[in-house]
């Protein structure tokens, strides 16, 4: 595989973007940062498929496409299915020698939002992982159905206000905990599963390269702060990602062969979850006296999860 250099940002910046501007994602959206990084970390041909979601509707506004690679748009469920079908077709045609360029390396990538990954497309993703195709699934996790008006998804964390789990006098927003998708995917026996964040560009590019290189179904969950639904200023996308990784709401780690867990980023100064929540409008109500205990509960939960991650890293399981 033709890996591009990610030694430092200067080297990385010599890559030619294959994701074009003038897509209609919101200003400051992290989706395009992640997509650009994936496409810049390899020179290989890419076949990309997108679930319905912000990324898909914004990059294919008739008559324009923002993709300089092969790109398939398909329904809410089946990005994983369609890209694995393309992969099998490529494999068969390569064997028969009917491809235009038989030796050109091709990588298969599926992008899905958290709604299509955690909820709607979960069964299809699980199926594709089980069949063991050589592809990479990247979840752009913005913790709600941002494309349709910010409904709750099973990625929404406790206490967040969404349009279908509203905060008010009788409710503090979503009551259920977030699904641990990374562990679920690791349990499928995937060779490479990771959770990455765009503010740590190097660990993200390394993770992407590893996922593309490894043969077999790989899954990557990426944090994608949504300025529209998390309610913060677009310019703070990277600052907020910093808060997310430093408060351990989104620990950055990888699981190799479903047992070898490596923590890729240990914050020097761990900040409180409260600080992370204070930067976003969707947690505004938690700072009222009657809901303050939710913040403590979330903090306790995050601490326990971080403890578990460290133990797992030590025990290699």
């Amino acid at each position: 595989m033709a890996i591009t250099s990610i030694k430092n940002l200067k080297e990385f910046s010599t890559n030619n973007d294959r994701f074009e501007g003038a897509h209609t994602l919101c200003p400051g959206c992290a989706h395009s940062m992640i997509v650009r990084e994936l496409m810049n970390c390899t020179d290989d041909n890419l076949v990309i498929s997108s679930n319905t979601g912000c990324l898909e509707v914004s990059t294919a506004v008739y008559p324009f496409t923002s993709w300089d690679t092969s790109w398939i748009h398909i329904g809410f469920e089946n990005a994983a299915t369609s890209v694995t079908a393309a992969q099998v077709m490529h494999k068969v045609r390569k064997k028969k020698g009917t491809l235009k360029d038989n030796d050109a390396p091709v990588k298969f990538v599926a992008f899905g939002g958290d709604g299509s990954t955690f909820d709607i497309g979960f069964q299809w993703l699980s199926g594709a992982m089980e069949r063991g195709h050589d592809f990479t699934y990247i979840c752009l996790d913005n913790e709600n159905y941002a494309n349709t008006g910010g409904q709750r998804s099973s990625a929404t964390p406790v206490g967040a206000h969404t349009s279908t789990a509203q905060a008010g006098t009788h409710s503090y927003g979503k009551k259920q905990k977030k699904k641990d998708i990374v562990s679920i995917m690791a349990a499928h026996g995937s060779p490479y599963v990771a959770q990455l964040a765009p503010n740590k560009w190097k660990s993200m590019a390394k993770g992407f390269q590893k996922a593309l290189e490894v043969e077999g179904p790989c899954f990557i969950n990426t944090v994608s702060p949504c300025c529209t639904e998390w309610k913060f200023d677009p310019k703070d996308t990277i600052n907020l990602t910093d808060l997310a990784t430093d408060s351990l709401m989104f620990p950055i780690y990888e699981i190799i062969d479903s047992h070898e867990l490596n923590i890729l980023y240990r914050p020097k100064n761990i900040i409180s979850v409260e600080e992370y929540m204070a930067a976003q409008g969707r947690y505004k109500h938690l700072f009222k006296p009657q809901y303050r205990h939710i913040i403590d509960e979330v903090q306790k939960d995050i601490d326990a999860k971080w403890d578990l991650l460290q133990r797992r890293e030590e025990a290699r399981l």
Binding site: L9, S13, H23, L25, P27, G28, C29, M33, I238
Partner: peptide
């Protein structure tokens, strides 16, 4: 830094 984090290429 601006290049890697620009969302609009």
């Amino acid at each position: 830094n601006c290049w890697v984090w620009c969302p609009d290429s």
